[in-house]
Design a protein around this nucleic acid. Structure first.
Lengths: 148, 148
DNA sequence: AGATATCACCCCACTTTTACCCACTACGAT
DNA sequence: ATCGTAGTGGGTAAAAGTGGGGTGATATCT
C-alpha cells in the first residue's frame, strides 16, 4: 500500500517522477502500473488510484442521483478531470495542464501516501496543510468521538 | 470509458475535433466511431452516446407514459434533437446549427468525460458550472448521505 | 428551367503538443 | 572506486488540433 511522503520536482513540460516505492507497489501488488489521476473531491490536490481502486470509486460516484444538481457537480469534478497515465521508461508521467492548474502545481510537488491511493500536492500547499495540523492541537472531544 | 476534460475550438463552419482519446475509446471499445449527439436532459449542454449506449437510453425513453404531458416533452427534447455523426478523416464532426444554438456553443467548447457518455459544453457555461463547485464546498451532510 | 447561392464533405497545409529516446547527475551499497 | 538505481533535463519525430480552400449536391430565386 502507499505510504510515506516524497518530494519530487516537475519539469517545464509537466512531467513528474512517480516515487519508485509507489511504482513497486503498483507492479507487485496490482500487476498494472497504470494510474488514474483526478482532482480530489475535497482538497486542492490530485489523487491517484490504481485501476481497481478507481473502479470502486467510480462505482460509488455512479450511484449519485442525477436529478440532484450538486450530485452532478460532484460527479463532474471527479470524472471529467480524470486521466489514465502510465509511467514512461524513466518512471515519469505527464500531468495534463488542466490538472496542474486545478491543484496549483508548480515545480516542487509532494507525494503523500494514503494507503489505497496517494495524493499529489504542490509543496507550498502541502506545507500549509501540515503546518495547520501542527498548530491546531487536535480537539480532545473530537478524538474521543472518533475513538482515537 | 470516457474520462477527462478537453478544451477544443469550433470553427465557423461548426466543426469540432473530437478528442483523440474519445475516438480511441470508440474504436477500441465499441468498434464503431459513430456518435449520437443530443441535447442533455438536465443541463444546457450536448451529450454524446456510442451507438449501443444510445440504444439503452432510447429504450428507457420509450417506456415513458405517452399519457403524461411532461413525459412527452422529455421525449421530444431528447429524441427530436438527436443526430448520428461520424468523425471525418481529421477527427472532426459537424454539429448541426440547431444543436449549436441549443447548447449556446460558440468558438470555445469543452468536452467533459462522463464514463459511458461525454458532454459538450460552451466553455463559458462550463466555467460557470465548475467555478460554482469550487466555491461552494459541498455540503458535508450530502457527502455523508451518499457515502462519499 | 436555368442561374445562383448555400451547405456538407473532402483534401491539404500549418502549428502546437505529446510521446519516446538518450544522456547526465546524485546517492547508496558493495 | 564502481556499479546500480532514482531522479532530472533536453531533443526529435509523430500525432493532435486548427484553418482554409475546392467540389458536388441541394435549395432558392427569377
Amino acid at each position: 500500500m502507499f505510504l510515506g511522503g516524497y518530494a519530487n520536482s516537475m519539469d517545464e513540460k509537466g512531467r513528474v517522477n512517480i516515487p519508485a516505492d509507489y511504482r513497486d507497489v503498483l507492479r507487485n501488488q496490482h500487476g498494472d502500473c497504470r494510474l488514474i489521476i483526478t482532482r480530489d473531491l475535497l482538497d486542492d490536490c490530485l489523487r491517484a488510484y490504481p485501476v481497481a481502486r478507481w473502479r470502486d470509486w467510480l462505482a460509488k460516484l455512479e450511484k449519485l442521483p442525477a436529478s440532484n444538481r450538486t450530485a452532478r457537480r460532484i460527479y463532474r469534478r471527479v470524472v471529467s478531470s480524470a486521466v489514465v497515465l502510465e509511467p514512461d521508461k524513466q518512471g515519469r508521467v505527464l500531468i495534463p495542464a488542466s490538472l496542474r492548474q486545478a491543484a496549483q502545481l508548480r515545480k516542487a510537488v509532494h507525494f503523500a501516501g494514503a494507503n489505497q491511493t496517494f495524493e499529489i500536492w504542490d509543496s507550498k500547499l502541502w506545507q500549509q496543510e501540515t503546518e495547520l495540523v501542527d498548530a491546531e492541537d487536535f480537539d480532545p472531544a473530537m478524538l474521543d468521538e472518533f475513538g482515537l
